[in-house]
């Protein structure tokens, strides 16, 4: 990608990412004390997913890079969710 302009992120954006990750980590520890049955897993996964999203978007530059990378990433996540969905045909109806 030498011919394309490199995006340089500022320290502020890095610090913001770090802050968000720390807050969310604290949150995922905190929710373990709530009794939500099988939804505990769901909440934990949602928080982890958000963290991964933040890392991908800002820290790993998906937002500033060629669109095709964002498209691929989203496609892969959709595929992964579909696989999970099909898996739960088993686990939800046992």
């Amino acid at each position: 990608m030498s011919e394309e302009k490199q995006h340089i992120s500022s320290y502020t954006s890095h610090i913001l990412v770090l802050g968000a990750l720390l807050v969310l980590t604290a949150a995922s520890v905190a929710v373990t004390s709530l009794e939500m049955g099988k939804y505990n897993t769901l909440v934990a996964m949602l928080i982890a997913g958000t963290k991964a999203g933040i890392v991908l978007t800002w820290f790993m530059h998906l937002k500033f890079d060629n669109k095709i990378f964002a498209i691929f990433t989203v496609a892969v996540i959709v595929l992964f969710l579909l696989v999970l969905y099909v898996t739960f045909f088993d686990y939800s109806y046992r």
Partner: peptide, 24 residues
């Protein structure tokens, strides 16, 4: 693409739920 969603056909006799059997 579709090849990602058929793995359960190796498990028809393993004790999966009935719905999973039909889907796979």
């Amino acid at each position: 693409f579709v090849g990602y969603f058929v793995w359960g056909h190796h498990m028809f006799t393993s004790g999966m739920s009935g719905r999973a059997l039909y889907a796979f």
